[in-house]
Write a protein that binds this DNA or RNA. Structure first.
Length: 314
DNA sequence: AAAGTATTCAACCGCCGACGT
DNA sequence: GACGTCGGCGGTTGAATACTT
């Protein structure tokens, strides 16, 4: 069958030969690609424009990074995937030199299995049902015991404003003394929007790499203050901050209560993710509109109880 | 060493939205 | 508004390679 553009003439398919690569590379580097559909004709290739585009993006582009993914890249993928789902192109934008195809393949062949082996659902990043009730404190995922320098945030009613002013959310402790960490209060830095996290029971996102002191989530958050490439980036960063802001620590809680609360939040997140998927055009899309409307309006103008409710019904 | 099985990843497929006519 | 084309995306396939028996 092939694409419409492929039916017009005899089109070669399958793996690219070195000669074809050479032709495409030479053409693109000297002429660029104003129109992919005309590239094969002018480059002397028996391929469709789409195939040329794909070959260029995934293989010939000079700025591509080669080799296996680093632990840091892996953590970035997991962190962003937790928020965006299978939006590989968006995830790849946060990994210079990596393509969406590469990220997708890496996810499917590697990360997915790793998460499953840790008892986590790779789609929702929450505990698999088979791991929930049977989890003992020893095999419960390390939500509370990690070496990441994620900060614990204490949110009190006094720092929840009921107007549009930015809330002051204080960091009372960090878990790591690593000096390369995020600022002690990263809501302080100038940014286009300040996220008001909803009050919720204890929630600490699963930290998958206990040995990764320099959390990629944190570096991403920290870097976000300096460069917003486009609106989508802003959203990703805002969402990451939102997720981070959901963290709340209460040292006095009994362990069982903590686990119970975690399970409840996990349930909530699962539902939210599934709803997001169902509402979107593509599978696993996140409903940015919904989230943004909540982040930018609802949380900014309601009292704590209402925000609590929102958090639970999200 | 050979056969069978699992994994990886480049490339394809089909759908969608944007855009021009 | 209808239609066609194009670029972009996520899901899927299957050949090549790695691993196991």
């Amino acid at each position: 069958m092939g694409h419409r553009c492929c039916t017009k003439q005899k089109i070669k398919r399958g793996l690219w030969s070195p000669e074809e690569d050479e032709k495409l590379l030479r053409y693109i580097t000297t002429h660029g690609h104003k129109s992919w559909s005309s590239v094969p004709k002018f480059a002397g290739l028996q391929r469709c424009g789409k195939s040329c585009r794909l070959r260029w993006i995934n293989y010939l582009r000079p700025d591509l990074k080669r080799g296996s993914f680093t632990a840091e890249e892996e953590q970035i993928i997991i962190d962003i995937h937790r928020i965006l789902g299978n939006r590989w192109a968006q995830i790849a934008k946060h990994l210079p030199g990596r393509t969406d195809n590469e990220v997708k393949n890496f996810w499917n062949s590697c990360i997915k299995k790793k998460l499953i082996s840790q008892g986590l659902d790779p789609q929702t990043h929450t505990l698999l049902s088979s791991h929930r009730r049977t989890s003992s404190s020893s095999n419960f995922p390390n939500y509370n015991n990690n070496n990441n320098n994620n900060s614990f945030l204490i949110i009190t009613s006094s720092n929840i404003p009921n107007n549009n002013n930015a809330p002051i959310i204080e960091t009372t402790q960090t878990l790591s003394s690593s000096s390369s960490s995020l600022p002690t209060n990263y809501y302080d830095k100038a940014q286009p929007s300040v996220v008001q996290p909803p009050l919720s029971p204890i929630y600490e996102p699963p930290i998958l790499d206990n040995n990764n002191n320099n959390s990629c989530m944190n570096s991403l958050l920290w870097d976000s203050g300096t460069a917003h490439h486009d609106a989508e980036d802003c959203r990703v960063e805002t969402l990451l901050e939102y997720g981070q802001g959901l963290q709340k620590h209460d040292a006095d809680e009994d362990d069982d209560e903590i686990r119970e609360a975690n399970n409840n939040i996990i349930e909530m997140n699962t539902n939210a993710s599934l709803e997001g998927s169902n509402n979107a055009n593509h599978n696993n899309n996140f409903d940015f509109g919904l989230l943004e409307s909540v982040l930018y309006s609802e949380f900014m103008s309601h009292d704590i109880n209402y925000m609590d409710e929102l958090a639970w019904n999200f």
